[in-house]
Simulated assay, not measured.
Amino acid sequence: MAYVYAPDRKAERPMTHLDGSSGILQVDGYSGYRPLAEKDAVSLAFCWSHVRRRFYELAAAGPAPIAGEALKRIAELYRIEDEIRGQTQDERRAVRQQKSRPIADGLAPWLREQLALISQKTKLAEAYALSRWEGLTRFIDDGRIEIDSNTVERSIRPIALNRKNALFAGSDAGAEQWATIASLIEPAKLNDVEPLAYLADVLSRIVNGHPNSQLDDLLPGAYAASTKPKAVA
């Protein structure tokens, strides 16, 4: 996991940050990622949580039977994900092909049918889903892909909140340093390493002469593996 600072949300930012990348890119609905896909640099996997949120907002505002039905069908996709959490990518793909594929195959034509019958606000929610359908259903064919980007969303929420509360950073250089620190702290959390203790230990090792050629050994993933208690035979 790495954080990169950009001063704005121009489409050129992800193009620059991800130049030379390939493979699957799991994203929200931000249009700045589309040029990457159009270059055939990456394949986009979109987030069902963002789709669900749009229908939820409609359902919460008042009677909305179509939005409610969409939420029920999306909930079935999430129920299947709960069943296969922690399984291998091949196992996840097999279950998704059997159980999630029929739900998705039924949802798309149903949404298109409703577009002719509903208000503009609901049309926007359905058009959002249908315009991203290939990327939304990519997870069904690839067990490595998650159904949403919630893990990333949760990890960046504290940073986003602090950005608003503290006016983020005093300069571009300060923001870039913040991104570097976050790129160490958040992976440490994911690897069950206490961030403050980790940073203190790593800085101590560097001060005490840890070889520059072996700095990769101090990155959170490698650090967690090296400090994990060894099993006693």
Score class of each variant (00 low, 15 high):
A2G: 11
V4A: 14
D8C: 05
R9K: 13
K10D: 15
R13F: 04
T16N: 12
S21L: 10
S21E: 09
G23A: 12
I24S: 07
I24H: 09
G32K: 08
L36G: 09
A37N: 05
K39V: 00
D40P: 00
V42Y: 05
S43A: 11
S43R: 12
A45W: 03
F46S: 14
C47S: 05
W48I: 04
W48F: 09
R52M: 03
R53Y: 06
Y56K: 13
A59H: 12
A60K: 15
A61I: 06
A64Y: 00
A70M: 13
L71R: 07
R79T: 03
I80F: 05
R85F: 04
R85Q: 12
G86D: 11
G86C: 08
Q87C: 06
Q87R: 15
T88S: 15
D90F: 04
R92L: 06
A94E: 08
V95H: 07
K99E: 14
S100G: 02
R101T: 00
R101P: 02
R101N: 01
P102H: 11
P102C: 07
I103H: 10
A104E: 07
L107R: 06
W110H: 08
L111T: 11
R112C: 04
R112Q: 13
E113R: 13
Q114M: 14
I118K: 03
I118F: 07
S119W: 10
S119E: 14
K121I: 00
K121P: 08
A129F: 02
A129E: 02
L130C: 08
L130T: 04
W133F: 02
G135A: 07
G135S: 05
L136K: 06
F139S: 01
D141G: 15
D142G: 06
G143M: 07
R144H: 12
I147K: 10
S149C: 10
N150R: 09
V152D: 02
R154C: 01
I156V: 14
R157H: 04
R157G: 00
I159V: 13
A160D: 11
N162M: 10
N162F: 00
R163P: 12
R163A: 10
K164S: 01
N165S: 10
A166K: 13
F168E: 04
A173R: 15
A175T: 09
A175Y: 03
E176N: 07
E176A: 06
Q177R: 15
Q177T: 09
W178L: 14
W178D: 08
A182T: 00
L184N: 06
L184K: 01
E186W: 01
P187A: 02
P187E: 04
A188I: 01
K189N: 10
N191S: 09
N191E: 05
N191G: 05
V193R: 03
E194Q: 14
L196S: 06
Y198K: 02
A200Y: 03
S204I: 00
R205F: 01
R205T: 06
I206N: 13
V207K: 15
N208I: 00
H210C: 01
N212P: 03
Q214D: 14
L215H: 05
L219S: 10
T227M: 10
A231E: 13
A231S: 12
A233P: 10
A233I: 11
